[in-house]
Simulated scan of single mutants.
Amino acid sequence: MSLKWKGVMPAVTTKFTNDDVLDLQMFETNIKAQLDAGVHGIVLGGTLGEASTLLDEEKSILTQETVKIVNGKVPVLMNVAEQSTKGAIAAAKKAEDDGAKGLMMLPPMRYKAGDRETVEYFKAVANNTSLPIMVYNNPVDYKIEVTLDMFDELLKCDNIEAVKESTRDISNVTRIKNRFGDRLKIMTGVDTLALESLLMGADGWIAGLVCAFPRETVAIYELQKAGRIQEALAIYRWFLPLLELDINPKLVQNIKLAEVATGIGTENVRAPRLPLFGEERTKVLAIIAKGMRTRPTLPEYKNLQELV
Protein backbone atom coordinates (compact mmCIF):
# COMPACT_ATOMS: atom_id res chain seq x y z
CA MET A 1 0.00 0.00 0.00
CA SER A 2 1.49 3.28 -1.12
CA LEU A 3 -0.37 5.45 1.40
CA LYS A 4 -0.91 4.64 5.05
CA TRP A 5 -4.61 5.03 5.72
CA LYS A 6 -4.49 5.75 9.43
CA GLY A 7 -4.62 8.52 11.99
CA VAL A 8 -6.16 11.97 11.73
CA MET A 9 -6.39 13.63 8.34
CA PRO A 10 -7.95 17.10 8.44
CA ALA A 11 -10.39 18.05 5.71
CA VAL A 12 -8.98 21.56 5.77
CA THR A 13 -10.86 24.76 5.07
CA THR A 14 -9.82 27.04 2.23
CA LYS A 15 -8.74 30.46 3.41
CA PHE A 16 -9.88 33.60 1.57
CA THR A 17 -8.90 37.25 1.94
CA ASN A 18 -11.43 40.05 2.32
CA ASP A 19 -11.11 40.46 -1.47
CA ASP A 20 -12.13 36.83 -2.10
CA VAL A 21 -8.78 35.51 -3.28
CA LEU A 22 -6.83 32.65 -1.72
CA ASP A 23 -5.28 33.66 1.60
CA LEU A 24 -2.17 31.52 1.39
CA GLN A 25 -0.56 33.13 4.43
CA MET A 26 -3.37 32.13 6.80
CA PHE A 27 -3.67 28.80 4.99
CA GLU A 28 -0.02 28.08 5.78
CA THR A 29 -0.55 29.10 9.42
CA ASN A 30 -3.32 26.54 9.73
CA ILE A 31 -1.46 23.75 7.94
CA LYS A 32 1.56 24.25 10.19
CA ALA A 33 -0.69 24.04 13.26
CA GLN A 34 -2.02 20.73 11.95
CA LEU A 35 1.49 19.40 11.41
CA ASP A 36 2.62 20.57 14.85
CA ALA A 37 -0.30 18.69 16.40
CA GLY A 38 0.77 15.48 14.70
CA VAL A 39 -1.81 14.90 11.97
CA HIS A 40 -1.21 12.04 9.55
CA GLY A 41 -2.31 13.62 6.27
CA ILE A 42 -4.04 16.65 4.72
CA VAL A 43 -7.21 16.49 2.62
CA LEU A 44 -7.88 19.41 0.29
CA GLY A 45 -10.96 20.47 -1.62
CA GLY A 46 -13.66 18.71 0.35
CA THR A 47 -16.96 20.16 1.48
CA LEU A 48 -15.16 22.08 4.21
CA GLY A 49 -12.71 23.28 1.58
CA GLU A 50 -15.61 24.87 -0.34
CA ALA A 51 -14.65 22.78 -3.36
CA SER A 52 -17.79 23.63 -5.32
CA THR A 53 -16.78 27.29 -5.40
CA LEU A 54 -13.09 26.82 -6.23
CA LEU A 55 -11.66 27.37 -9.69
CA ASP A 56 -9.53 24.58 -11.13
CA GLU A 57 -6.48 26.84 -10.98
CA GLU A 58 -7.15 27.54 -7.28
CA LYS A 59 -7.29 23.81 -6.53
CA SER A 60 -3.98 23.44 -8.29
CA ILE A 61 -2.41 26.28 -6.31
CA LEU A 62 -3.67 24.81 -3.03
CA THR A 63 -2.26 21.39 -3.85
CA GLN A 64 1.14 22.72 -4.88
CA GLU A 65 1.38 25.05 -1.87
CA THR A 66 0.37 22.32 0.58
CA VAL A 67 2.94 19.93 -0.87
CA LYS A 68 5.58 22.61 -0.26
CA ILE A 69 4.42 23.31 3.30
CA VAL A 70 4.26 19.67 4.42
CA ASN A 71 7.61 18.94 2.76
CA GLY A 72 7.08 15.19 2.75
CA LYS A 73 6.01 14.94 6.40
CA VAL A 74 2.51 13.69 5.57
CA PRO A 75 0.63 12.82 2.36
CA VAL A 76 -1.52 15.43 0.65
CA LEU A 77 -4.85 14.26 -0.78
CA MET A 78 -7.11 16.12 -3.19
CA ASN A 79 -10.85 15.59 -3.34
CA VAL A 80 -12.43 14.74 -6.68
CA ALA A 81 -16.06 15.85 -6.93
CA GLU A 82 -17.02 16.17 -10.58
CA GLN A 83 -20.13 15.93 -12.72
CA SER A 84 -18.67 13.79 -15.50
CA THR A 85 -16.33 10.83 -15.71
CA LYS A 86 -14.19 12.78 -18.16
CA GLY A 87 -13.94 15.67 -15.70
CA ALA A 88 -13.09 13.34 -12.80
CA ILE A 89 -10.28 11.68 -14.77
CA ALA A 90 -8.88 15.11 -15.68
CA ALA A 91 -9.10 16.27 -12.04
CA ALA A 92 -7.29 13.15 -10.84
CA LYS A 93 -4.54 13.65 -13.40
CA LYS A 94 -4.12 17.29 -12.42
CA ALA A 95 -3.94 16.42 -8.72
CA GLU A 96 -1.24 13.85 -9.45
CA ASP A 97 0.71 16.35 -11.57
CA ASP A 98 0.49 18.90 -8.74
CA GLY A 99 2.05 16.50 -6.25
CA ALA A 100 -0.93 14.94 -4.44
CA LYS A 101 -0.24 11.48 -3.05
CA GLY A 102 -3.84 10.29 -2.92
CA LEU A 103 -7.41 11.06 -3.87
CA MET A 104 -10.68 11.30 -1.98
CA MET A 105 -13.48 10.63 -4.47
CA LEU A 106 -17.17 11.38 -4.33
CA PRO A 107 -19.75 9.75 -6.62
CA PRO A 108 -20.88 11.84 -9.60
CA MET A 109 -22.21 15.25 -8.65
CA ARG A 110 -25.71 16.50 -9.52
CA TYR A 111 -26.75 13.39 -11.49
CA LYS A 112 -28.02 10.65 -9.16
CA ALA A 113 -26.16 7.76 -10.72
CA GLY A 114 -27.38 4.19 -10.36
CA ASP A 115 -25.27 1.47 -8.78
CA ARG A 116 -23.68 0.29 -12.03
CA GLU A 117 -23.02 3.85 -13.18
CA THR A 118 -21.42 4.74 -9.85
CA VAL A 119 -19.15 1.68 -9.93
CA GLU A 120 -18.07 2.37 -13.50
CA TYR A 121 -17.39 6.02 -12.64
CA PHE A 122 -15.01 5.09 -9.80
CA LYS A 123 -13.35 2.34 -11.84
CA ALA A 124 -12.74 4.64 -14.80
CA VAL A 125 -10.87 7.10 -12.62
CA ALA A 126 -8.97 4.35 -10.79
CA ASN A 127 -7.86 2.90 -14.11
CA ASN A 128 -6.54 6.28 -15.25
CA THR A 129 -4.44 7.26 -12.23
CA SER A 130 -1.67 5.68 -10.23
CA LEU A 131 -2.82 7.45 -7.06
CA PRO A 132 -4.48 5.50 -4.24
CA ILE A 133 -8.17 6.31 -3.86
CA MET A 134 -10.46 6.68 -0.86
CA VAL A 135 -14.14 6.43 -1.81
CA TYR A 136 -16.22 8.98 0.06
CA ASN A 137 -19.42 7.16 1.03
CA ASN A 138 -21.90 9.75 2.31
CA PRO A 139 -25.43 8.87 1.20
CA VAL A 140 -26.96 11.23 3.76
CA ASP A 141 -25.57 14.35 2.08
CA TYR A 142 -24.88 13.15 -1.46
CA LYS A 143 -27.80 10.72 -1.94
CA ILE A 144 -25.74 7.89 -3.44
CA GLU A 145 -24.70 4.94 -1.28
CA VAL A 146 -21.75 2.78 -2.18
CA THR A 147 -22.88 -0.59 -0.86
CA LEU A 148 -20.68 -3.49 0.19
CA ASP A 149 -21.69 -5.35 -2.98
CA MET A 150 -20.49 -2.35 -5.00
CA PHE A 151 -17.19 -2.40 -3.09
CA ASP A 152 -16.80 -6.06 -4.09
CA GLU A 153 -16.51 -4.85 -7.66
CA LEU A 154 -14.54 -1.69 -6.90
CA LEU A 155 -11.84 -3.55 -5.00
CA LYS A 156 -10.85 -5.29 -8.21
CA CYS A 157 -9.00 -1.99 -8.80
CA ASP A 158 -5.85 -2.29 -6.72
CA ASN A 159 -5.60 1.46 -6.09
CA ILE A 160 -9.07 1.74 -4.55
CA GLU A 161 -7.81 1.23 -1.02
CA ALA A 162 -10.03 3.01 1.50
CA VAL A 163 -13.47 4.33 2.31
CA LYS A 164 -14.44 7.51 4.07
CA GLU A 165 -17.27 5.96 6.06
CA SER A 166 -20.00 8.57 6.52
CA THR A 167 -23.18 6.51 6.37
CA ARG A 168 -23.92 7.38 10.04
CA ASP A 169 -24.44 3.65 10.66
CA ILE A 170 -21.81 2.75 13.24
CA SER A 171 -22.30 -0.98 12.62
CA ASN A 172 -21.12 -0.49 9.05
CA VAL A 173 -17.55 -0.41 10.38
CA THR A 174 -17.97 -3.98 11.57
CA ARG A 175 -19.69 -5.04 8.35
CA ILE A 176 -16.78 -3.72 6.30
CA LYS A 177 -14.20 -5.41 8.54
CA ASN A 178 -16.09 -8.69 8.46
CA ARG A 179 -16.35 -8.65 4.68
CA PHE A 180 -13.07 -7.14 3.54
CA GLY A 181 -10.66 -7.38 6.48
CA ASP A 182 -7.74 -5.03 5.92
CA ARG A 183 -8.24 -4.86 2.14
CA LEU A 184 -10.52 -1.85 2.56
CA LYS A 185 -9.19 0.66 5.08
CA ILE A 186 -11.80 2.65 6.98
CA MET A 187 -11.49 6.37 7.67
CA THR A 188 -14.45 7.57 9.71
CA GLY A 189 -15.90 10.77 8.27
CA VAL A 190 -18.44 11.90 10.86
CA ASP A 191 -16.98 13.91 13.74
CA THR A 192 -19.76 12.99 16.16
CA LEU A 193 -19.18 9.26 15.62
CA ALA A 194 -15.41 9.40 15.45
CA LEU A 195 -14.34 7.82 18.73
CA GLU A 196 -17.07 5.19 18.48
CA SER A 197 -15.91 4.29 14.96
CA LEU A 198 -12.26 4.10 15.99
CA LEU A 199 -13.09 1.81 18.88
CA MET A 200 -15.04 -0.44 16.50
CA GLY A 201 -11.99 -0.76 14.27
CA ALA A 202 -11.82 2.23 11.94
CA ASP A 203 -8.25 2.94 10.91
CA GLY A 204 -8.44 6.72 11.04
CA TRP A 205 -10.49 9.89 11.04
CA ILE A 206 -11.10 12.43 8.27
CA ALA A 207 -11.89 15.25 10.67
CA GLY A 208 -13.59 18.65 10.52
CA LEU A 209 -13.25 20.44 13.87
CA VAL A 210 -9.57 19.50 13.74
CA CYS A 211 -9.27 22.62 11.57
CA ALA A 212 -9.69 24.68 14.75
CA PHE A 213 -8.65 22.14 17.40
CA PRO A 214 -5.88 20.00 15.92
CA ARG A 215 -4.17 18.93 19.17
CA GLU A 216 -7.38 17.78 20.85
CA THR A 217 -8.38 15.77 17.77
CA VAL A 218 -5.05 14.00 17.42
CA ALA A 219 -4.93 13.38 21.18
CA ILE A 220 -8.23 11.48 21.03
CA TYR A 221 -6.92 9.29 18.23
CA GLU A 222 -3.54 8.59 19.83
CA LEU A 223 -4.94 7.93 23.30
CA GLN A 224 -7.54 5.43 22.13
CA LYS A 225 -4.94 3.75 19.93
CA ALA A 226 -2.73 3.30 22.98
CA GLY A 227 -5.62 1.83 24.99
CA ARG A 228 -6.04 4.91 27.19
CA ILE A 229 -9.76 4.95 26.50
CA GLN A 230 -10.94 6.92 29.54
CA GLU A 231 -8.57 9.79 28.76
CA ALA A 232 -9.72 9.82 25.15
CA LEU A 233 -13.34 9.71 26.26
CA ALA A 234 -12.93 12.66 28.62
CA ILE A 235 -11.59 14.84 25.81
CA TYR A 236 -14.28 13.57 23.42
CA ARG A 237 -17.07 14.44 25.85
CA TRP A 238 -15.72 17.98 26.14
CA PHE A 239 -15.41 18.12 22.34
CA LEU A 240 -18.87 16.84 21.37
CA PRO A 241 -20.79 20.16 21.41
CA LEU A 242 -18.12 21.56 19.10
CA LEU A 243 -18.10 18.45 16.92
CA GLU A 244 -21.84 18.87 16.38
CA LEU A 245 -21.03 22.09 14.50
CA ASP A 246 -19.76 19.79 11.73
CA ILE A 247 -23.06 17.97 11.13
CA ASN A 248 -24.90 21.11 10.04
CA PRO A 249 -25.56 22.74 6.66
CA LYS A 250 -23.50 25.73 7.83
CA LEU A 251 -20.52 23.57 8.85
CA VAL A 252 -18.09 25.73 6.85
CA GLN A 253 -19.13 28.95 8.55
CA ASN A 254 -19.29 27.23 11.94
CA ILE A 255 -15.81 25.77 11.74
CA LYS A 256 -14.30 28.94 10.34
CA LEU A 257 -15.66 30.82 13.37
CA ALA A 258 -13.99 28.23 15.58
CA GLU A 259 -10.72 28.77 13.68
CA VAL A 260 -10.96 32.47 14.49
CA ALA A 261 -11.32 31.64 18.19
CA THR A 262 -8.16 29.51 18.17
CA GLY A 263 -6.21 31.99 16.05
CA ILE A 264 -5.61 29.82 12.99
CA GLY A 265 -8.21 31.09 10.54
CA THR A 266 -10.64 33.77 9.45
CA GLU A 267 -14.37 33.59 8.88
CA ASN A 268 -14.17 34.64 5.23
CA VAL A 269 -16.26 32.34 3.05
CA ARG A 270 -16.97 32.42 -0.67
CA ALA A 271 -20.43 33.36 -1.93
CA PRO A 272 -23.06 32.06 -2.13
CA ARG A 273 -22.02 31.22 1.42
CA LEU A 274 -22.19 34.19 3.75
CA PRO A 275 -20.86 34.61 7.29
CA LEU A 276 -23.29 33.71 10.05
CA PHE A 277 -25.38 36.49 11.51
CA GLY A 278 -28.12 37.13 14.04
CA GLU A 279 -29.36 34.42 16.40
CA GLU A 280 -27.63 31.67 14.45
CA ARG A 281 -24.25 33.35 14.87
CA THR A 282 -24.89 34.04 18.55
CA LYS A 283 -25.65 30.38 19.25
CA VAL A 284 -22.52 29.14 17.48
CA LEU A 285 -20.32 31.71 19.20
CA ALA A 286 -21.72 30.63 22.57
CA ILE A 287 -20.83 26.98 21.88
CA ILE A 288 -17.32 27.98 20.82
CA ALA A 289 -16.87 30.30 23.81
CA LYS A 290 -17.88 27.56 26.25
CA GLY A 291 -15.50 25.14 24.56
CA MET A 292 -12.66 27.64 24.86
CA ARG A 293 -13.42 28.29 28.56
CA THR A 294 -13.44 24.60 29.40
CA ARG A 295 -10.70 23.49 27.01
CA PRO A 296 -8.94 20.55 28.64
CA THR A 297 -5.30 20.24 29.53
CA LEU A 298 -4.02 17.47 27.30
CA PRO A 299 -1.72 14.68 28.40
CA GLU A 300 1.42 14.09 26.38
CA TYR A 301 -0.08 12.18 23.50
CA LYS A 302 2.71 12.03 20.92
CA ASN A 303 4.82 8.89 20.55
CA LEU A 304 2.43 6.89 22.72
CA GLN A 305 2.76 3.90 20.44
CA GLU A 306 6.43 3.73 21.25
CA LEU A 307 5.63 3.57 24.97
CA VAL A 308 3.12 0.72 24.90
Rank of each mutant, 00 (worst) to 15 (best):
E153C: 08
L22G: 01
E300K: 14
A124I: 07
M187V: 06
V70H: 09
M200F: 11
T147Q: 12
G114M: 02
A100D: 05
K112P: 05
K68A: 09
T66K: 12
K123Q: 15
Q253P: 03
G201I: 05
L103H: 04
L276P: 02
T53Q: 15
D20T: 04
T53P: 00
M78N: 14
F122M: 07
I288C: 02
R273F: 12
V284E: 04
M26C: 01
L276G: 04
G204V: 05
A81S: 14
W5N: 05
I264T: 04
P299K: 10
R273S: 07
V119I: 15
P10I: 03
L3I: 14
I288V: 05
T53C: 03
G46T: 12
T262D: 06
L154C: 11
T147H: 07
M200S: 11
T47A: 11
V284S: 03
T167M: 02
H40V: 07
E216Y: 03
M292P: 05
E161F: 06
K73D: 06
V135H: 07
Q224V: 07
R116N: 13
I61V: 15
T66N: 09
T147R: 12
W5T: 06
S84M: 04
T167E: 05
I176P: 05
V125I: 12
V119N: 11
I69A: 07
L103W: 06
T188K: 05
D246P: 00
A33D: 06
W205D: 02
E222G: 00
D115A: 14
R116D: 13
A202R: 11
V252P: 02
E161H: 06
S84N: 11
L223R: 09
R273Q: 11
K156W: 01
M109N: 10
